[in-house]
């Protein structure tokens, strides 16, 4: 019982910290999803293209970013790159822009590799006969893609893409290691102040769960809308 009392008093006293953390977590997740998806589409197109060097480059990129830890990628970009003279500028009026930029860039580069694979497999899951039928009528490859293949691929892509978005929210907790005041960072801060480790972690877990649960519900709602729109 004292556990829940402690949770309550912690929340009462430090809720501003947690809320600020949530805000930063959402900012990071939003931009990661945005850039990750845009880059992911380009990367998938590169991987599916007939231009061999482009295809190899995309494949190498995807394999590398999926095969190394996000933590390493993040540290590489935030601590490593400045050592060879590459660093993000500080921007007036936006606090900690340098850290945020590094965090968002690292997470976007990582997420785009996963998004690219989701899109590629969604497109390749469409029966090859559909493309052949379109080409046999005289459609160009690009027309066949937009008229026939992509509308069918979307159905395969959306659910997996929704998963990726939820994953991004959870994975974003890693940016706390480069000093971005996200939910995890704030949780650690509160923990250091009141020594209520278990309670603080419980609060963080609950908040993360609400964030992912709400967003996954929203996504499946959207999916159902889209499906109904089809017919």
């Amino acid at each position: 019982m004292t556990f829940f009392v402690n949770v309550w008093t912690t929340l009462e006293k430090y809720y501003r910290f947690f809320l600020e953390g949530v805000q930063n977590t959402l900012i990071i997740a939003f931009f990661t999803v945005l850039f990750g998806t845009l880059l992911g589409i380009l990367m998938a197109m590169a991987k599916l293209s007939g231009i061999k060097p482009l295809k190899w480059l995309a494949t190498a990129y995807i394999e590398f970013f999926r095969g190394t830890p996000l933590m390493v990628q993040l540290m590489f970009i935030f601590y490593g790159l400045p050592m060879i003279g590459v660093s993000f500028p500080d921007v007036p009026f936006i606090e900690n822009f340098q850290r945020f930029a590094a965090g968002i860039v690292a997470m976007s580069l990582n997420s785009c590799a996963y998004v690219a694979e989701v899109i590629r497999s969604g497109i390749q899951a469409v029966d090859v006969g559909q493309m052949e039928a379109a080409r046999s009528l005289g459609f160009k490859k690009s027309q066949s893609m937009t008229l026939v293949i992509l509308p069918q691929a979307i159905r395969n892509i959306l659910p997996a893409l929704g998963n990726e978005f939820v994953t991004v929210i959870k994975e974003s907790s890693i940016v706390s290691v480069i000093g971005i005041a996200d939910l995890m960072f704030r949780t650690n801060g509160v923990k250091a102040k009141n020594y209520k480790t278990l309670e603080c972690l419980f609060i963080a877990a609950m908040i993360y769960f609400v964030l992912t649960f709400v967003s996954s519900r929203l996504i499946s709602l959207m999916e159902r809308r889209l499906r109904r729109g089809r017919k």
Partner: peptide, 18 residues
């Protein structure tokens, strides 16, 4: 290809269109 109609064993009607 516009002048050569093709009919497939698996029909290959566009599933996303009526």
């Amino acid at each position: 290809r516009q002048k050569m109609g093709m009919v497939f064993q698996q029909f290959n009607l566009f599933e996303n269109m009526n």
